[in-house]
């Protein structure tokens, strides 16, 4: 077993009808790193996340997590193995309070007697102390992103998948969010895989990047390599730069 490898995705293909949303994609995430998956709209990033977390099953390919083939495993079992994720469009539990939501995640590894302490710890870590008694339906996007992060972290993952968790945040919110992610990565030794549109966030955080376009991998490398890659500039950065 490869001890440095956290997640190996090989030849992953997900089809919606005739559309290959993810087409023969392979990449590997190392233990402890911050890994980024980028690409223009509709590139297949969220679909890849859904396949990795088990919310949909791929037509072909294999997903190996910590040496275990999880391609056919149910999502909750993947979580038990140490994988957690957030959603691009926040999926809050609108009628539940923040602390109750975090508690749902905390039960993943904690029993009734220890769960409250875990909840307190996560709420503290994610800076949710002031809103812990509030109902999620009343909260704004920036706070909800933190709630999603807190409940995912409460499951005590080794690998955390973040789907555009910076989207919709203003500059200040983004900066503090990035600090939080760095802290989680460094202090809790959680491997992060981020999907991001915001280049500021990707370049600032990640050590390695895979670029998807129309479901296919078009480049792999460090932030520096990626920003100098002609194909990527054409497919992704180019569009962005001219837009700006």
């Amino acid at each position: 077993m490869d001890t440095t490898s956290m997640l190996q995705v090989s030849n992953l293909t997900v089809q919606f009808g005739s559309l290959k949303a993810v087409n023969n994609v392979s990449f590997e995430i190392q233990r402890g790193e911050i890994f980024a998956l980028i690409g223009p709209n509709g590139a297949g990033k969220t679909t890849a996340f859904n396949a990795i977390s088990g919310l949909l099953f791929p037509q072909a390919g294999q997903i190996v997590f910590k040496g275990t083939d999880i391609t056919k495993l149910m999502p909750h079992k993947r979580c038990k193995l140490g994988m957690a994720r957030t959603f691009q469009v926040v999926r809050a539990f609108n009628y539940m309070t923040v602390e109750d939501v975090v508690r749902v995640g905390a039960y993943n590894r904690q029993g009734e007697d220890t769960v409250a302490a875990k909840v307190d710890q996560m709420i503290e870590l994610c800076g949710l102390g002031e809103v812990r008694q509030r109902v999620c339906g009343d909260l704004g996007l920036a706070t909800l992103r933190r709630v999603e992060l807190a409940r995912a972290l409460a499951t005590e993952p080794e690998l955390l998948l973040l789907d555009e968790s910076g989207a919709g945040l203003n500059t200040a919110e983004l900066a503090s969010f990035m600090d939080l992610l760095r802290k989680i990565n460094r202090e809790q030794n959680i491997t992060l895989c981020i999907v991001e549109h915001l280049m500021q966030m990707v370049m600032g955080l990640s050590q390695r990047i895979v670029v998807l376009d129309s479901g296919e991998v078009i480049a792999t490398g460090t932030p520096h390599e990626i920003s100098n890659n002609q194909k990527v500039i054409e497919a992704y950065l180019g569009k962005r730069v001219t837009q700006c």
């Binding site: 088990g54 909750h76 979580c79 959603f87 999926r91 499951t155």
Partner: peptide
């Protein structure tokens, strides 16, 4: 409220 969201939190 949301079955998928709860599944990825380790709930069967």
């Amino acid at each position: 409220e949301d079955e998928d969201a709860v599944e990825v939190l380790g709930v069967d």
